[in-house]
């Protein structure tokens, strides 16, 4: 049967990992490729690199990271952050990325989802949605790293990106991001039910129980986590053992 996926997320700035630099077993803890290879060995199911470099001048640096990762890492990996055109997408896929994630550019230019899916296949187009709860108890789509409200309803936008050809949704609760109090389960479940695409839950993980909840109560297909892995609070194996004890199907238990 299909297992649930555990996906570490690496923030990359100017070609260097900016979180997760305290792994003692790494030669160069700032090297995203070395950290990615470690996660592969530990049994991570997929990886996401988020390029948080502000200027597009450094895009070539990220292409190089992708190229080197493709030589060392043999699980799927996604690149997100600042991709605005079909040419940007093509470069990342050519360099060896399996998927790309669109966020702000998808909202501004929804056609990009369609053209990307048509040119490269839906399986490599992930749409990242940053959601914030409204006073009315619904959720609104935010862009520009959560700084700009769009007026779009999250559930409607999720259905729209599915219709445009997206292959997967990476859903982040802005309200929960960084809080360590758990995923926003109601949001995750609502989006998971609104589309037939796989949904990756993100934002708010602090404990192993939170990961289990995202996959069960939240009905997510995969969970993304950054800090709990980067700061070595838990290893991938510990996470998987815990989830397996909860009756959740995971792969790669040593």
């Amino acid at each position: 049967m299909l297992s649930k996926r555990i996906i570490p997320c690496l923030d990359v700035h100017d070609g260097r990992v900016v979180k997760g630099t305290n792994f003692v077993q790494l030669r160069d803890a700032g090297d995203p490729v070395e950290l990615a290879a470690l996660y592969d060995r530990e049994g991570a199911d997929e990886l996401i690199f988020l390029d948080i470099t502000a200027s597009s001048d450094n895009r070539e640096t990220m292409v190089d990271v992708v190229r080197r990762t493709a030589e060392e890492v043999f699980i799927p990996f996604t690149i997100g952050g600042g991709l605005r055109t079909i040419e940007d997408i093509r470069r990342m896929l050519r360099a060896g990325a399996d998927k790309i994630a669109l966020n702000t550019s998808a909202v501004k230019t929804p056609r990009l989802i369609q053209e990307g899916a048509h040119a490269f296949g839906s399986q490599c187009i992930v749409v990242a949605i940053d959601a914030r709860k409204t006073a009315q108890g619904q959720w609104e789509v935010y862009i520009h790293g959560g700084r700009t409200a769009t007026g779009k309803d999250v559930l409607e936008w999720a259905a729209e990106v599915e219709a445009l050809g997206a292959g997967e949704i990476l859903l982040t609760s802005m309200d929960r991001d960084g809080t360590k109090i758990g995923y926003e389960l109601e949001l995750t479940r609502a989006v998971s039910r609104a589309v037939s695409l796989p949904v990756i839950a993100s934002g708010g993980v602090g404990t192993l129980e939170h990961l289990a909840e995202g996959l069960t109560l939240g009905e997510a297909d995969a969970v993304l986590a950054a800090s709990i892995f980067h700061y070595k609070e838990y290893s991938i194996q510990e996470v998987k053992r815990f989830l397996a004890e909860r009756g959740i199907l995971v792969r790669g238990l040593a």
Binding site: M1, L2, S3, K4, R5, D45, S122, Q123, G167, E168, S196, L197, P198, D221, A222, R251, G252
Partner: peptide, 10 residues
Amino acid sequence: RKVPHMGWNS
């Protein structure tokens, strides 16, 4: 079921 079938299967 969700389509595509995406992820790790045995």
